[in-house]
């Protein structure tokens, strides 16, 4: 089952992020709606996990909780064993900065801004000194194969290249988890394949922890472990 280089099973592996009995409730008018209904989930270090499910299943809500963009209504979110579910916005932002790397469907690169500057954007909000930022950005862009496009702006790049800049951006802070939300959704099949290759490479060769959110079950199957979410409940598939 596992594609990890080491052949440990889950019980022996280190847990990076754990959701314990997480409930997320939305109030729309008089209707109370549980987007997540008592969800438990463990994300282990170095695993490639995909989350899939139909729209309205609670997939996005789960992603926001894992991405530390939202706090649960009840339950605990443990990062390296520490409960962070009650933290304030500013603290959450700082944790996101050093813990997570985001890859979005829409790339979300800054327009008229070079690849290098886009890639190093998270370092603006980190403790990494200015003198080291460009070096880190450069090595991450090399990793995604764009070392010859440092000065190019997003408009001068193809969709696949833009997404690779975004992946470089997700890597610059050496995150514990890379959270990719439909990263191939806006790409043609060739570019999509390249991006998936890149994720596999980061997972296998660098042991990165990747959480991959998609509605496409075929793509989801490329991961070590598939989480299917439906009506706010999750089922773990192997």
């Amino acid at each position: 089952m596992t594609k990890l280089p080491s052949s440990k099973n889950n019980s022996q592996k280190e847990i990076v992020l754990e959701l314990r009995d997480v409930v997320k409730t939305y109030n729309s008018g008089n209707v109370i709606f549980n987007a997540l209904d008592h969800v438990d989930l463990k994300i282990y270090k170095g695993e490639f996990i995909s989350i899939t499910g139909p729209s309205g299943s609670g997939k996005s809500t789960l992603m926001h909780i894992i991405g530390l963009l939202d706090n649960p209504t009840s339950g605990q979110v443990l990062l390296d064993g520490h409960d962070i579910s009650k933290l304030k916005e500013t603290q959450m932002a700082q944790i996101r900065n050093v813990t997570l790397g985001f890859v979005f469907q829409q790339f979300n690169l800054l327009a008229k801004t070079s690849s290098l500057e886009n890639a190093t954007l998270p370092l603006l909000y980190s403790d990494v000194p200015k003198s080291k930022r460009d070096g880190i950005g450069l090595s991450m862009l090399q990793k995604v194969g764009l070392e010859d496009k440092l000065k190019n702006t997003p408009a001068q790049l193809s969709g696949g290249q833009q997404q690779r800049v975004a992946i470089a951006r997700a890597l610059v802070n050496n995150p514990k988890i890379i959270l990719a939300d439909e990263p191939t959704g806006n790409l043609d099949s060739k570019s999509g394949k390249d991006v998936m290759e890149l994720f596999h490479h980061l997972h296998k060769k660098e042991g990165r922890t990747i959480v991959f959110v998609t509605h496409d079950l075929d793509l989801a199957k490329e991961a070590d472990r598939i989480i299917i979410i439906k009506d706010g409940h999750i089922t773990v598939h192997k």
Binding site: Q94, R96, V98, F102, N108, P122, L124
Partner: peptide, 16 residues
């Protein structure tokens, strides 16, 4: 708005 969302996601706190 999207830029602000992105900046916040990657670690910009409100005051920044």
């Amino acid at each position: 708005t999207r830029e602000i969302g992105l900046r916040k996601a990657i670690g910009a706190y409100p005051r920044a």
